[in-house]
């Protein structure tokens, strides 16, 4: 991969690969993929310093469309794999890409507990409210009572609010995008990756094959009297998502309350943009450094464990002394 120089800026093309893509025509995934590729170029990332980690499902295949390190993991498990990579090699830019069923259904436990760690990585959720690759079953994000075309009966399980869940478990940057507004999504991905902690970007997307309720036209508001798009952008309002580094508890709590009322808006007007940018919570690497001082300089993948002849460098004499009898 070329790196950016004074004469040459990286473009999305530098993060594309010459392989055919087998997503359905009109799939919302394309807009998200395109936006991430543009964002990588904008951030001037070097391909070998990026790991794109996917779950299972249509969106889980996204890693194959980047010339970076691409890890197609197990259903629901992208976060633990991504954590392992980032913890052992903190220099990597790690981006998780997966579906709403993958992350909030089978992978919900990892979603919850990743929030508690606030590791510096980005999780991009491809949210189309259905399980696409298994032909359209209800995802945890589908509202109760709805019946997309694959469901034999209306959904009788409740809807999970992913943004609220992300906030409650500790994600420190939370945003929402819409896959047909690529320009906005590029900016959101850039900001999410730049955020020095765990960022969650939920991207609404139509599934043209299985979600016949929330289509491109629905998002465009074509069914509304106003004819106005349903999505509106928070940066066009006076909503301020930032919790500054020195925020006291009352400020943080106030911000959480604003967040809560905002994430409940849905229906004819759907907010998108940055909902939370919490700069007050320490990152996992910061916390590790309080125990292992040279963690960033000597992370797990870099530590020299043997000399040239294969002799271990670890000195166990103190460890043996603790249990030494004679």
């Amino acid at each position: 991969m070329p790196t950016a120089t004074a004469d040459r800026k990286l473009t999305a093309k530098d993060f594309q690969v010459p392989f055919p893509n087998d997503w359905c025509p009109g799939c919302g995934d394309f807009g998200i993929l395109n936006a991430i590729q543009q964002a990588f170029a904008k951030l001037e990332l070097e391909a070998h310093q990026v790991a794109v980690v996917g779950g299972i499902g249509c969106s889980g295949k996204a890693p194959y469309f980047f010339p970076t390190y691409g890890v197609h993991t197990l259903h629901g498990r992208l976060l633990p794999f991504a954590h392992g990579i980032k913890l052992a090699n903190p220099e990597m830019t790690v981006v998780g890409v997966g579906g709403d069923g993958d992350g909030l259904g089978i992978g919900a436990g990892h979603f919850v507990n990743s929030g508690r760690r606030n590791l510096d990585m980005t999780y991009i959720l491809f949210n189309n409210e259905v399980y696409g690759l298994t032909k359209g079953q209800a995802a945890p994000t589908l509202a109760m009572g709805l019946q997309p075309k694959s469901l034999p009966e209306p959904n009788i399980q409740g809807q999970l609010n992913s943004l609220m869940m992300a906030m409650s478990v500790g994600f420190t940057w939370i945003g929402r995008g819409y896959s047909y507004n690529v320009k906005k999504v590029v900016d959101l991905v850039v900001e999410a990756i730049r955020h020095p902690g765990l960022s969650f970007l939920d991207i609404l997307q139509p599934c043209p094959t299985y979600n016949n309720l929330h289509t491109k036209d629905w998002y465009a508001g074509k069914d509304l009297n106003s004819g106005q798009p349903r999505i509106y952008w928070l940066d066009d309002t006076d909503y301020d998502p930032v919790i500054p580094p020195d925020a006291d508890e009352a400020t943080a709590l106030g911000k959480m309350n604003e967040f809560l009322s905002k994430v409940h808006e849905w229906g004819d007007e759907i907010p998108a943009g940055v909902f939370l940018d919490n700069r007050a919570t320490s990152t996992f690497a910061d916390r590790i450094e309080t125990r292992i001082e040279n963690y960033r300089a000597q992370p797990p993948n870099k530590r020299v464990i043997a000399d040239g002849s294969g002799k271990p460098t670890a000195d166990l004499s103190k460890i043996f002394d603790e249990v030494r009898m004679t």
């Binding site: 890890v71 954590h83 392992g84 990579i85 980032k86 913890l87 993948n301």
Partner: peptide, 9 residues
């Protein structure tokens, strides 16, 4: 999964 991710690095 985390241990596998770390081993890959």
């Amino acid at each position: 999964c985390m241990a596998a991710g770390a081993a890959l690095t």
